[in-house]
């Protein structure tokens, strides 16, 4: 029973297809990483799920209902009380003229999570949960008086206020100092373990994805090109793009090895596989026909003719 399902999701911005027929499920109580470079469409996927954009095609199903259709305010509110989002820029996601307390109080009041008399107390509890102590000193502060890590924790507290079941985290650590990142990632892990929250962790950083995520989805040019359990995908990557990413990540643990220099980048192809211009494994078929996502190992799929060819065995 999945927490949230995305099926056939497509989003166009004028002529640009940012997201192309994306489908996946978020398993409850697990962190799923959505990994890709800028321009891969990963942030767009998160924003569609958050109902900030309307999809061009496809659906997001939550609790058995399509969350992307034009719904009544009551239904939208219900959805928003269950699916929340954390943004990339800690300063940009907070209103500069409002206090920390305001940011956390608003969702509490809108969704009537607690009676009015208990709102202040709940704000302090939430601040303590995310490690912002002493809460009575943090609550009246304005965003510019906090550090980047503190701001991001406020954003997390705000998301937690409605007691959601799914949290979409869009590159929550990429604008934070390196030594602060682990703290925020550990907080996510703690929330997953203690509260059974489901996370969609959007990132371009494979290392942090490995650190927090149970499952991994790799996106390229608007499509999912590989998916599976994190360790499995990283130890045995199927799609050539995943392999390329993995070899490009700086890692202290590896020696200075030669990196297979990909051929000069040209525009992605329109017919056939989108990765063909950069792919060391490309065969003739790749230029003619676009591959589909096929399961090559148990629970691991990839979109590649060579490493995950379409199975000829008819599905039973």
């Amino acid at each position: 029973m999945s927490a949230l399902e995305v099926a056939g999701l497509t989003k166009d911005f004028r002529k640009l297809r940012a997201v192309d027929d994306v489908a996946f499920e978020l398993q409850p109580g697990r962190i799923t990483a959505l990994v890709g470079e800028s321009g891969s469409g990963k942030s767009t996927v998160a924003r569609v799920i958050a109902r900030l954009y309307e999809p061009t095609a496809g659906s997001v199903r939550f609790e058995g209902r399509d969350a992307t259709s034009r719904a009544r305010r009551h239904d939208v509110l219900r959805y928003r009380s269950q699916v929340q989002m954390i943004f990339q820029d800690p300063f940009g996601s907070l209103n500069p003229v409002k206090t920390v307390a305001h940011h956390i109080e608003r969702p509490l009041r809108i969704h009537r999570i607690v009676p009015r008399s208990q709102v202040k107390a709940r704000v302090q509890e939430l601040l303590e949960t995310v490690g912002l102590v002493p809460p009575e000193q943090i609550a009246p502060k304005y965003p510019h008086e906090l550090s980047g890590g503190q701001r991001q924790r406020v954003a997390i507290a705000r998301a937690l206020a409605v007691e959601p079941s799914v949290v979409l985290a869009d590159e929550p650590t990429s604008m934070l100092d390196v030594s602060i990142r682990i703290g925020v990632l550990n907080l996510m892990l703690k929330l997953k373990e203690e509260r059974g929250l489901t996370f969609l962790y959007v990132t371009h950083d494979l290392a942090s994805a490995r650190y927090v995520a149970d499952d991994m989805l790799v996106m390229y040019a608007g499509q999912i090109v590989e998916q599976g359990p994190t360790e499995q995908v990283l130890q045995n990557p199927l799609h050539p793009y995943t392999r390329l990413l993995l070899s490009a990540v700086p890692d202290a643990g590896r020696s200075r090895e030669a990196f297979a220099r990909a051929p000069r980048r040209v525009a992605d192809a329109t017919v056939g596989c989108r990765f063909v211009a950069r792919c060391p494994l490309a065969i003739d078929l790749c230029r003619r026909e676009a591959p589909t996502l096929e399961e090559a190992h148990p629970s691991q799929s990839a979109r590649c003719h060579v490493t995950a060819p379409r199975s000829w065995q008819a599905s039973a």
Partner: peptide, 11 residues
């Protein structure tokens, strides 16, 4: 983003 965040909060 803070406007988006307000929207996602349900404002």
């Amino acid at each position: 983003d803070f406007i988006h965040a307000a929207k996602v909060s349900g404002e």
